[in-house]
């Protein structure tokens, strides 16, 4: 167990050379590739973290935007609700007005229909009344009634106003005008004379006279002078009565 100094020195040199060799060809390349890989991993981690932060920022932005959208949507929904409510109230008012108008129209139509029915019923009643009266009066009418009616007519002619007399006279003054006298029964001469005298006085002239018989008059006389017709008979009076009642209703 002795030390060979040459070997001792050479071993020191050899080991130092080996340290250099391994440092140059082994440790440095391996540590370098490990460092590069670690740097790449750290870079990827940093990139991933940056991407994550960016994603989180985008997520936050997206959530904010969603919140804004939600708020806008709520506002729009509220506004739409108000508009719908307002439009519904407007439509309901329009519908109510239309219903009221339709109800009023129906009420008017109904009222008119009732009036029409009542008028028809009245007309029918009047017609029936007139027919009944005509039948009764036709059984009661005779020559005496005709003469009393003529006397009444003569009295009425005497009470005509001056204007009415002038109007009849003007019509009678036209050329070719005749006086047509229609009676229910033949009128006796005395009655004819009183009627003719009264008409001559009113017309201020004597017109040619034509007598005719019409039993539908029931009783009395109808005198036609040009465009004017003087009614003094029961048939016309009944019609006048019925027409007057109808007009009055």
């Amino acid at each position: 167990m002795e030390v060979d100094w040459t070997t001792f020195a050479l071993e020191i040199i050899n080991f130092l050379i080996l340290v250099w060799i391994l440092k140059r060809f082994f440790y440095h390349p391996v540590l370098d590739v490990i460092a590069r890989r670690r740097a790449g991993i750290e870079k990827e981690m940093a990139d991933a973290k940056a991407v994550e932060e960016k994603a989180q920022a985008l997520e936050q932005q997206y959530e904010n935007r969603l919140a804004d959208w939600e708020k806008e949507r709520e506002g729009a929904r509220a506004k739409l609700g108000e508009e719908i409510s307002r439009e519904r109230e407007h439509q309901m008012a329009a519908v109510a007005a239309a219903v009221e108008a339709e109800r009023e129209r129906n009420r008017v139509l109904d009222e008119r229909h009732r009036q029409e029915l009542r008028r028809t019923a009245e007309e029918q009643a009047l017609a029936q009344g007139a027919a009944f009266s005509a039948r009764v009066l036709s059984r009661l009418a005779d020559a005496g009634l005709d003469e009393r009616i003529v006397e009444t007519m003569v009295a009425d002619l005497q009470r005509l106003t001056l204007e009415q007399r002038q109007t009849l006279a003007t019509s009678a003054a036209e050329a070719g005008v005749k006086m047509h006298i229609v009676t229910a029964r033949p009128l006796r001469d005395a009655a004819q004379a009183r009627l003719s005298a009264a008409m001559t006085e009113v017309l201020q002239r004597a017109l040619p006279q034509e007598y005719a018989i019409d039993e539908s008059l029931i009783g009395g006389v109808r005198v036609t002078i040009g465009p004017w017709v003087l009614h003094a008979n029961l048939s016309d009076d009944l019609q006048f009565f019925a027409g007057g009642v109808r007009r009055a209703s």
Binding site: D4, T6, T7, L10, E11, N14, I17, L18, I21, L22
Partner: peptide, 19 residues
């Protein structure tokens, strides 16, 4: 003047092998 022993030669071999 250096006497190269078998130990040194073996060490060189190891160095070559490791290199």
């Amino acid at each position: 003047p250096l006497a190269i022993t078998a130990t040194v030669v073996t060490t060189w071999g190891i160095m070559l092998l490791l290199g």
